[in-house]
């Protein structure tokens, strides 16, 4: 509960935020804070400067293009994600957002923070990978776009590097999506999760089994094909108090198959 001393600033524009982030190696963006503050409480991380993104309007808002592409500001909260009219175009977004933790966390936690923290048990990294999302990253001098499957680099490590801000996430049109998880209690932390999408090629991304979501492109579009593909992926998941590596490997198959079944039921 007791953070190390830190400097705080709340810029109102992205440029200002980028300037502040560039000015200090120890500066970190603060989004919903629902991971970062916990890490700071435990003093597992101690940034020198927190650059609060909450007052930056350009990072908020959801846009639905005529071709169905959704562009979601990084500072969009889970609550906004599940309530917004636009996200109904890709229903899985709201459905998954609704099962993240609890009301309080959903009111503060952001889609950008969720993917940038890339906690292996988070819901959204595998979902973004399965949906084929694109991440728009602003740096001090340029903006670039990274595919979700290239965005996640390690635990708490993503393509949005020091001094950079993830500004928005673009998600193509589609409806045939699924998500399945085994959680510790209802709406609890994921033991293993998987997202699947059947819009175009079949894509399944599995969370909690490695440092980054594992993308699988199964040979077929049914559960058996997915199971085969997961088996073939030679997963080597971690063991912890909730699951052995072996159990996780087994669950990965099961939830991947369930996610694809849900997706195909919607195609």
């Amino acid at each position: 509960m007791l953070l190390r001393e830190v400097e705080y600033v709340r810029p109102s524009s992205l440029d200002e935020a980028l300037r502040l982030l560039a000015a200090d190696d120890g500066a970190r963006p603060l989004a919903g804070g629902q991971t970062l503050l916990n890490v700071m409480k435990a003093r597992a991380a101690a940034p020198d400067v927190l650059v609060d993104l909450n007052a930056i309007e350009e990072l908020k808002g959801i846009d639905l293009a005529p071709n169905g592409t959704l562009t979601i500001g990084a500072m969009t909260t889970y609550t906004e994600l599940l309530e917004a009219a636009e996200t109904k175009a890709r229903p899985i977004l709201g459905e998954v957002a609704a099962t993240i933790a609890d009301v309080q966390v959903r009111n503060r936690g952001t889609i950008g923070g969720n993917v940038c923290s890339n906690d292996p048990t988070n819901h959204l990294p595998p979902l973004m990978v399965a949906l084929g999302a694109e991440m728009v990253i602003a740096g001090a001098d340029a903006e670039r776009t990274v595919k979700a499957e290239d965005f996640f680099l390690g635990v708490y490590l993503t393509a949005a590097g020091p001094g950079e801000v993830l500004t928005k996430i673009r998600i193509p049109a589609g409806r045939s999506d699924g998500f399945a998880a085994v959680t510790i209690g209802a709406d609890g932390t994921c033991i293993v999760n998987a997202a699947a999408s059947l819009n175009g090629e079949a894509r399944v991304a599995i969370g909690c089994v490695a440092a980054v979501p594992v993308l699988i492109r199964p040979g077929g579009r049914d559960a058996d094909a997915v199971r085969d593909a997961v088996r073939g992926a030679d997963l080597d998941p971690p063991s912890d108090v909730h699951a052995s590596g072996e159990y996780r490997r087994h669950l990965a198959e099961v939830v991947a198959a369930r996610a694809i079944e849900q997706a195909s039921a919607r195609s």
Binding site: D102, I184, G185, A186, D187, G188, T189, V241, H242
Partner: peptide, 9 residues
């Protein structure tokens, strides 16, 4: 990690 029951459980 020490999961106590919540309302939904």
């Amino acid at each position: 990690d020490y999961h106590v029951p919540h309302a939904m459980d």
